[in-house]
């Protein structure tokens, strides 16, 4: 597949109740980029990711991965190169042990059990939860669950990593761990969040979404400091860029 390019052309989507969630988005993400997708609650971030993954299909426009259109027919191929980590790890982990959960993907691709084991142990090692492999996923802490969910996608060796709010509901230490982990991958990354500090640290490029439309698309360090734009889209400039709350000195 040519350089794992991901292209979205004039994408529209309405939910069955006629709610227009995505209205004419277009962008192109190239190999090795890490892109943040930000926007207020209900802006349409999760819907966009579902469209990228082919969980739902656009009512107009198209998504291309490499040179392949995302359609029902090409889904198996698309899903091999795109891995998605869900917003709620509970939706993603459903097997009896962490090991089986991480092995679920590779086994579906009919790899032989030796290779499956190698991939599983490797993925668990990468996210640092090898010691939890025989535990039941529903008994893990929030951060551990998130790590397990990420491992379950990594074991499939995707080219592009798609993540829906990876740091939501994590305590500061776990958040830091997940961020460090994500920075260490050199996959193409697409991350939605309203954790703008995280986006600021991890993504070179940011796409801002407002009511299902793209409000801005550009270099992160320019977009996130644009107080006017952020405010109009229901966001704020990252805390790390705001004035110091104690001494009121300007940071930027």
């Amino acid at each position: 597949m040519s350089h794992h390019k991901l292209e979205v052309k004039d994408l529209h989507y309405s939910y069955p109740d006629d709610h227009k969630a995505v209205k004419g988005m277009s962008f192109c993400i190239y190999h090795g980029e890490s892109v943040g997708i930000i926007g207020a609650n209900g802006a349409g971030k999760s819907t966009l990711l579902m469209l990228l993954m082919g969980v739902i299909f656009p009512s107009q426009g198209e998504v291309c991965v490499g040179d392949v259109h995302v359609t029902k027919k090409t889904l198996p191929m698309i899903r091999k190169s795109l891995g998605m980590v869900f917003q709620d790890p509970d939706d993603q982990l459903f097997m009896n042990t962490v090991y089986d959960d991480v092995a679920f993907g590779p086994r579906n691709y009919k790899l032989d059990e030796k290779e499956v084991e190698k991939r599983v142990l490797n993925a668990l090692e990468l996210v640092g939860i090898l010691h939890l492999k025989d535990r039941a996923p529903f008994k893990l802490s929030g951060g551990e669950k998130r790590a397990a969910a990420i491992a379950s996608v990594l074991s499939m060796h995707p080219d592009i990593l798609v993540m829906d709010e990876p740091t939501a509901a994590l305590d500061p230490k776990s958040r830091r761990k997940v961020m460090k982990l994500l920075t260490s991958f050199n996959h193409t990354k697409i991350i939605t969040s309203h954790d703008l500090d995280m986006i600021f640290e991890m993504c070179d490029r940011t796409i801002v979404i407002k009511n299902g439309e793209i409000a801005a698309d550009g270099v992160t360090s320019e977009i996130l400091v644009n107080a006017e734009l952020m405010d109009a889209c229901g966001l704020e400039i990252p805390l790390s860029l705001q004035n110091c709350p104690v001494c009121r000195t300007k940071k930027v």
Binding site: M50, V55, R79, K80, D88, Q92, F94, F104, V153
Partner: peptide, 10 residues
Amino acid sequence: RIYEAMCLRG
């Protein structure tokens, strides 16, 4: 959602 997550993993 669980079913979708399963499908996404092949």
